[in-house]
Amino acid sequence: MNKLLLAALVSGALSVPAFAADYAIVAPAAPGGGWDQTARTMQEALTAEGISGNVQVTNVPGAGGTIGLAQFVNQENGNPNALIVGGYVMVGAILTNASPVTLAEVTPIARLTGEAIGVVVPASSDIQSVDDLVAKLKENTGAVSWAGGSAGGADHITAGLIAKAVGLDPTQVNYIAYSGGGEALAAILGGQVTVGVSGISEFASQIEAGELRLLAVSTDTRVPGFDAPTLQEAGVDTAVQNWRMIAAAPGLSDEQVAAINADIEAMVNSATWKTALETKGWVNTYLAGDAFEAQLAADIAATEAILKDIGLVQ
């Protein structure tokens, strides 16, 4: 058996070809998180489909991805082999952390996946619908406590947008930040807070088991597999999506950008990628080119506005 293991180690060591890596993907988060999984799934798909001979993933965790982004911009200028995973959380983090480097300094390639934010209450809660929640908020905004991820992230923004859309002061939202969706989920299940907001996949198994009641989803269309209205359908006129994207280094030529675009498009259409999305429960929201750049600009503007309303950004 030790022989088998040794063989595995040695083959792992020798299977790397002698050429430079075709792509080096930076996952600006710790191993295990969403961005890391996106990067590693890309690595798998790009190599399995023969789009790229060798893909390396490096993790640069910290501060909502802004540490990885800053390092990427500083070190990879003009490198057509360097890619970075990012997402909507980065948009908020750049603003709240007053990051010196912004998304304007990378070359956005494409949006890959997206996820709705779910608004949930424990099964035992007396809140049955979004209307009940809005009524409670209007009665006493501060008495409704919201649990979600870190301050200024997509979850916090969703809570602020809901308050704003029903005509309340977003600074009065009593948002309790937890490090990571897991800890927030425990607080919601334990009935420590009134309502929870987080990526819908974090809640999926609890909703299925009947432990949590899903009041609404944050996207502008319903999410297949979940029996809940969108916020807009429930009478709260706002929509937000937590998306993930891939970007390339600054300072690339048009041909280089086109080549990367072609590789990513081939990956998105590959069987490996599609199967991976299915097993992980991710929704394909592939959007590239000008359409993506326009959406990115709109998201950044909207996020800055709501973060100012919440009071996190001056």
Binding site: G62, A63, T66, N97, A98, G152
Partner: peptide, 16 residues
């Protein structure tokens, strides 16, 4: 975590 404000990082990104 609660407010997203930076404390005692002395403008060093790695300390964020």
């Amino acid at each position: 975590l609660q407010t997203g404000q930076t404390r005692l990082a002395f403008a060093i990104p790695d300390l964020l």
